[in-house]
Design a binder for these strands. Structure first.
Lengths: 203, 203
DNA sequence: TCCGTTGTTGGACGTGTGCGCAATATCGTC
DNA sequence: GACGATATTGCGCACACGTCCAACAACGGA
């Protein structure tokens, strides 16, 4: 295959691994799959990564980090804390992103057995919680939210969202997607003492 | 190995598969592992199960069903709905049961790829939600809870619990176990209009 | 005691696994 | 245009995988 600079090649490997992982799941993405996806030999992957665990961790980090920024950027640009939170819910639960959440499920389950993947998953989960916590603090500061423990509130909101989304992605129809959004925004309104509908009606 | 009746043997296979799954994870439990655990040949497993998917689904069902009954029975015996709910939280989050929750994580992640496992996981998740919903209805009926949508409330409580427990099991210390219990019971008290501490102080 | 039923064996089959390494191809530099 | 550095190949190694099946052995009924 055409020769690339190390940086380009690393990126290409990560991108290929991601494509395969979306199709087959993180756990059953193999060296040969990734090589075939790139159209190169399998030996090349081990020239850039020490182990398959590292490749998968890098691939997972790529989507997770990108999604985080896809939420964080518009949230930072929102004029009010309430709007930022509304943006959070809209960008966290898009219907066409089930495959990304399936990767989270894979990462959580595999974390017990793959150290690099666990570290990445853990770090990014903390980032999401931090993003939410900062938004809550912003709202508390400007008086639009009432919350005595923003850290705990962030964990609770994130958890209810993950727990509900999990049902949609893993089981299909035990819970419908509409209800994930309605129930979790409704919960956030209660948690932060907002008027019902504050997070949805305005958009 | 000693000859067994079909029922005994099926049970032995499921038990062996479970032991291995706890040790190695559902996804990487193999026919040979299970056979070695029983001290028999691997061919025997396929004499009783059509595929490995079926074995894993049966193994997962065994723990999940047993844990469900371990909660359901004492909850049914509770004198009040409040006490039944307190029992629910105490039996759902025991410290020595992380391995069982790891199996749930495995099942949710693998569900996308293993039909039998998905069906089992889905069915048992619905059972848990149903158990919780019935308890809520019981409390609404006798006036101790206030809740307009017991089904939704049950899903929300279950989801926050799963979302938080997931952090403990997958990431170790992003959230501590104490907080899982405190935050989820605290949330249930708000959701059902109970006085703070109702679910914990009395025991 | 014999015999048929069936629980159980042990290995074959084809494919897949992560990883490592000598050989080769393609660059930028002189 | 030649050369050294290194990106890339292609295959080998030693296992592990699920599934299948002919042969064997233990049991209950006759």
């Amino acid at each position: 295959m055409k020769r690339m600079t190390p940086d380009q090649r690393r990126a290409a490997i990560v991108a290929a691994a991601l494509d395969v992982a979306v199709r087959k799941g993180l756990a059953s993405t193999t060296v040969r799959d990734v090589a075939a996806e790139m159209g190169t030999s399998s030996g090349l992957i081990h020239h850039y990564f020490d182990s398959m665990d590292d490749v998968l961790a890098a691939a997972f980090e790529r989507v997770a980090l990108q999604d985080l920024e896809l939420s964080a950027r518009p949230m930072a640009e929102a004029l009010t804390a309430v709007e930022a939170l509304a943006v959070f819910f809209r960008t966290y639960t898009p219907a066409d992103k089930d495959w990304a959440f399936q990767l989270w499920l894979d990462a959580w389950a595999e974390a017990a057995r793959r150290p690099a993947l666990q570290a990445t998953s853990r770090r990014l989960n903390l980032e999401w919680q931090g993003l939410l916590e900062r938004t809550i603090r912003r709202g508390v500061a400007d008086g639009s939210f009432t919350c005595t423990d923003p850290s705990a509130a962030a964990w609770r909101i994130l958890s209810i969202l993950d727990g509900l989304a999990l049902q949609v992605v893993a089981h299909g129809t035990t819970v419908t997607r509409d209800r994930v959004v309605a129930w979790s925004t409704g919960y956030a309104e209660v948690e932060l003492r907002l008027a019902p509908g504050s997070l949805t009606s305005r958009f």
